[in-house]
Amino acid sequence: MRITTLAAVFAVLGAAACDRPAQPADAPADAPAAPAASAFSYASTVDLSGFYMPTSRVRAGKWDLDHVFVGQAAEFQAWTGVETETTFAPVMIEFSDPASPMAETELGETRSVKARVLPTRYAVSDDRIEFEGTSPETGLVRFDGRIDQGALASSRRNLGDEGVVVTGTLTAGGQTVNDVKLRWWMGD
């Protein structure tokens, strides 16, 4: 009986070893992981939707951080993370090129050259926004921010104000910026 049990255990272990995904040996250490369903996590019990905009200029490489967008719960539920050829995700980061000319948009005057970064990974909860993505313009982008729920609730009651609701670290354009302070704006 013991020999049969040991044979069964070794057979299972052998089969499991065959199913192990290949790990590329030459992948750079800072390369983002390939998107997978488990790379996207949304576990917020409060409405975090809106635009999180810097309270002062945040420069990373040649880019200025324009905003971090967080969608509504329904957008997180509808988005599977495997869409291709899309320009929208429930969490996105947008940068502007401060050297580009100004342009008039529905949101007012803004820089004409922008770079929108879609996620390859995110984790959003009541107290945190974690994001990782890439774009041809910015390369690898990472953001890890802590949400101050009291400040966010106050800002939402006042339909946006200048108070800091998220503090975090941003990496983009090969540069890391600590102590990034963002305010909340509901958008149009």
Rank of each mutant, 00 (worst) to 15 (best):
V12C: 10
Q72R: 15
T55R: 07
H67K: 12
F51D: 12
Y52W: 08
C18N: 07
V68Y: 01
W79K: 06
A74R: 11
A16N: 08
G81C: 04
D47R: 07
P28R: 06
L13W: 08
P28I: 06
H67P: 01
D66W: 08
S41C: 00
T86R: 07
R57Y: 01
S44Q: 00
A74S: 13
S44Y: 00
P24F: 07
V12I: 15
F40Y: 15
A73G: 06
M53H: 04
D66R: 10
A25H: 01
A74P: 00
P28T: 04
V70I: 14
C18D: 06
R20P: 01
K62D: 09
Q23E: 13
A37H: 11
M53V: 15
D30I: 04
A16G: 10
D19A: 14
S38P: 00
Q77C: 00
A39G: 12
A60M: 11
A33I: 10
A33V: 12
K62P: 02
G81Q: 05
V82K: 15
S38E: 12
A37L: 12
A43F: 02
A16Y: 09
D64T: 08
A36W: 02
P24Y: 03
P21A: 09
S49G: 11
P54A: 11
R59V: 14
D26C: 05
A39R: 15
A31F: 02
A15S: 11
G71M: 03
S49C: 06
W79S: 02
L65T: 05
T86H: 05
S44G: 11
D26F: 02
T80N: 14
D66C: 03
A17Y: 11
W79E: 02
A43Y: 03
T55C: 02
A78L: 10
A39P: 02
G81A: 05
P54G: 08
A25Q: 01
F76Q: 00
W79G: 01
V82R: 14
V58T: 08
T86M: 01
S38K: 10
Q72N: 09
M53W: 04
